[in-house]
């Protein structure tokens, strides 16, 4: 804890707009470094409090024992639906597949207007146009995975072009990947600058695409790395920090998400800036989703219990939530033939 960011006067730090200059100012104030290079970022990130793995796992397990029943469950299931980024990221994706996904996003249960729509559909770059058209007028966002997703192993120029392309096609949200190789070799400034540049691409031409920064925690491995990468992404101006691409195992886990929720909570305490969290990949059941919502509620706080601040990156999760939702309304489990295949 020695070099934890000092408790600042939060109001003074909230930038009027979150432009690149303000973000850099904020990062310099938080880190106390005049220039943001590998050495200064390393000093700051490695001065963050450590994470004890056994304790973090234990805390997540304990949160997972909360018993969410009846009214709380009904409320939680509907919130979970509203938080889903309904995702298809396959080489075999076609416009037809994306349109079907978008239709489900708009109306998850055919003929049931009480079921809320999901938050967004998440697709590869070339499907952004199709997806935009399919959700037009619904308020559902279109998210595009970007920056040479999932590995990120491309030149900065190509990664930025990838983002610019998605933004030009109308993407509301950009899910970028960090350069894990750079992070693991201590080139923190490279990761930082990548995020800053991608954020600028999100705002090019007067656009305002939200930036989600994928840490790929399955490749960062340690919780200390997860905490450091979370802070690095937030310092660089991430609107959301996201666990995983879904292409690497393990993807999202509850303890990793808890560590990231602690990071956004502390970041807001120190800077006044609220950042969202998106666990993605591997969350398949309604029961799991409720555990994540409990963690959001008890770790970050209820301010994050909103699709603006918490998302699930998922595909099969939605059907399980719908089955549970139906069970709560009728008392009976229907079955996989009673929810739509997407």
């Amino acid at each position: 804890m020695t070099t934890t960011a000092p408790s600042h006067d939060a109001d003074a730090l909230v930038p009027a707009g979150r432009g690149s200059a303000q973000i850099a100012d904020l990062a310099r104030t938080v880190t106390g470094a005049a220039t943001l290079d590998d050495a200064s970022l390393r000093r700051y990130l490695h001065g963050l409090p450590g994470v004890d793995k056994v304790g973090a796992d234990g805390r997540a397990a304990q949160l997972g024992t909360r018993s969410i029943k009846t009214t709380a469950k009904a409320w939680g299931l509907d919130l979970a639906i509203r938080m889903i980024d309904l995702t298809t990221l396959e080489g075999a994706d076609t416009p037809g597949k994306v349109r079907a996904l978008a239709a489900k996003a708009r109306q998850p249960v055919p003929g049931d207007p009480t079921c809320p729509p999901v938050a967004a559909v998440c697709v590869y770059n070339d499907m952004v146009g199709v997806a935009k058209e399919a959700v037009a007028g619904t308020g559902i966002k279109v998210a595009a995975v970007s920056t040479a997703f999932p590995s990120g192993r491309a030149s900065s120029a190509v990664r930025l072009l990838d983002t610019a392309d998605a933004v030009a096609a109308g993407a509301d949200e950009i899910d970028m990947v960090i350069d894990r190789g750079a992070f693991l070799s201590g080139r923190y400034a490279k990761v930082y600058e990548d995020i800053v540049a991608t954020r600028e691409a999100c705002h090019a031409g007067g656009r305002d695409a939200h930036l989600k920064v994928i840490l790929e925690t399955g490749e960062l491995v340690t919780y200390d790395n997860v905490r450091r990468a979370s802070w690095l992404a937030m310092l660089a101006g991430a609107d959301f920090i996201k666990t995983s691409t879904g292409k690497v195992a393990p993807a999202a886990t509850l303890p990793v998400t808890v560590v990231m929720l602690e990071a956004v909570r502390d970041f807001r305490r120190d800077t006044g800036v609220q950042v969202g969290v998106k666990p993605a990949g591997g969350i398949k059941t309604a029961k799991d989703a409720l555990k994540y919502l409990v963690a959001v509620n008890e770790v970050a706080g209820e301010d994050w219990l909103d699709p603006d601040w918490f998302r699930f990156g998922a595909s099969s999760l939605l059907n399980d939530v719908l089955l549970q939702r139906e069970k709560m309304r009728t008392g009976w489990y229907s079955g996989p033939d009673y929810v739509t295949v997407d």
Partner: peptide
């Protein structure tokens, strides 16, 4: 101690 893993220390 000041270098404790603070979130886990709070739980402890």
């Amino acid at each position: 101690f000041d270098d404790a893993p603070v979130d886990q220390a709070i739980e402890g």
